[in-house]
Amino acid sequence: MGLKVLHLIDSGGLYGAEKMLLNLVQEQLNRGHEPMILSAGEPHIEEKPIESEAKRLGLPVMAWRMTPGLNLKEAWRIIKWAQAKNYQFLHSHGFKFNVLIGLFPRFLRKIPSITTLHGYVHARRFSKMWVYECIDRVAIYRMDGVVLVAEAMKGEIPERSRASLNIRVIPNGLNIADLKKRSTVALEDQIQQFINSHELVILGIGRLSREKGFDHLLRAFHKVKSEFPGAGLILVGEGKQRDALEGLTAELDLSEAVLMPGYCSNVPALLKQARLLVMPSLTEGLPITLLEAMAIETPVLVSAVGEMPKALGYGKGGHITQSIEPAELADAMIALLHNSCLKKKTEWAAQAVVRDYSAEAMTNNYLSLYNTVAGQKT
């Protein structure tokens, strides 16, 4: 009989965590299990990107609207609903449900609870987000299983604390066949017109937030334009830094060469037409976008953080920069754009994704964890 798993997420877009969750749910369905995505959001939000994408894919999803903040009353309603529906596991994706679920003792939850930590964002000390981070670090000790998407993330958990947590490292996985199929689909008119009007296009993809390093990328692109006047830059995503990044774009006189279209419904097709994906992140786990680029054989330039260097074979499948300072980043981008012999690296990257980062392998590892946790409860 299949497992009933309630996946809990309060999503801000359609990025790595969301794509990983959709791939996992699709594969769980394929194997006869009964997953459900519970997508939380504020009451005024009609539909979130993850909800519309889940519907497009035919995946089970429930929109659950609730007031923001430390809403323990609504979290308890969710737990009671999950109990009534006989869910066997609660699977949290993100700090919000780590906190809302983890603050309840196990004897009250009754349902085994697992969290996947997709990456840590280090907020400004004593800010509201920093307080939530601190609560999150405490709440995960009440989880029955803690998944890290990258081995490098173990450094975020104090060594003395690891023994008390049931930790596993499970890399993100892709539905590679679907990804390649989607890469052939037409792009939105605005994006396609921008690509057609530039000699080459560089991509930055991710939440528009400080840790993604897009301000560094914009400043580096300013120098790249002096070497490649016909180059364009597309920054895909939304976030709190949009106004600041738009202001920087205007300050650098790059408004005609930079497109910030918000969410893109078909990132694989965009990657297919790009000359280079640049990920100058300050912190990362294992970004799905990187794996997508590797599968599609788009050349990549990444910072040396998280699991990205390992995924790229420490340089065999892509290019890793030790510095994201604009001058050094620009030099690395220019060198890659001049290099016409990248095929060997992109082929290595595509083979690595099939071998190590498929949705099938990811799902096998999660099912093993579920069974282990269930065994501990009997």
Rank of each mutant, 00 (worst) to 15 (best):
N365W: 00
Y357N: 01
L291W: 02
I320N: 08
L312D: 06
E325D: 13
E297S: 10
E292H: 02
L286F: 05
S358Q: 05
Q322P: 09
G317Q: 12
H319M: 13
Q322I: 09
V300D: 07
P309K: 04
Q322R: 14
A332K: 15
V353P: 11
D356F: 07
L301H: 12
P299W: 07
Q322G: 15
E325K: 14
Q322V: 12
S323A: 04
L342W: 10
S323K: 04
P280W: 00
I334Y: 05
V354C: 03
V354T: 13
M333H: 02
L290T: 10
A352T: 12
T298W: 02
E284N: 06
L329W: 13
S323T: 13
V300A: 08
V302S: 00
H319L: 11
L301A: 10
L286G: 01
A327R: 14
A295T: 11
G318Y: 10
P309D: 10
Y370S: 04
R355Y: 01
L336F: 12
I324S: 06
Y357H: 11
L336N: 13
D331P: 03
E292Y: 03
A327E: 11
E284I: 13
N371A: 03
D356W: 02
E325A: 12
L286R: 00
A304L: 04
W348L: 06
E297C: 06
E297L: 00
L286P: 03
A327C: 02
M333E: 11
L337V: 10
M308G: 04
L342I: 13
L329H: 14
E284K: 03
D356C: 06
I324K: 04
D331Q: 15
M362E: 01
M279L: 15
L301V: 11
Y370P: 02
M279E: 12
P280I: 02
L329K: 15
K310I: 05
L286N: 02
S323Q: 04
G317D: 13
D331Y: 07
S340Y: 10
N339E: 15
A327T: 13
T289K: 00
S340T: 09
P326R: 03
A335S: 14
S358I: 07
V302K: 01
I324A: 05
V353G: 01
K316Y: 07
M279A: 14
I288L: 00
S340E: 15
L367T: 02
I296E: 06
G306H: 08
S368I: 05
S358D: 00
N364Y: 00
S281T: 15
G315N: 07
I296Q: 04
S323H: 02
E360W: 02
I296Y: 01
K316W: 02
L336T: 12
N364L: 06
L342Y: 10
S368H: 08
G317R: 05
A352Q: 14
K343C: 07
N364C: 03
G285I: 05
L301W: 09
R355V: 06
G317K: 07
K310T: 11
M333C: 10
V354H: 06
L342M: 14
P309F: 03
G315W: 08
P299S: 08
K316T: 01
E297F: 02
K310Y: 12
L337N: 07
A335F: 00
T363C: 07
L329V: 13
L336C: 12
T346D: 14
A293E: 05
I296A: 00
A349M: 11
G285A: 05
M308Q: 13
G313K: 15
D356A: 01
P299I: 08
E284C: 09
K344V: 08
D331F: 09
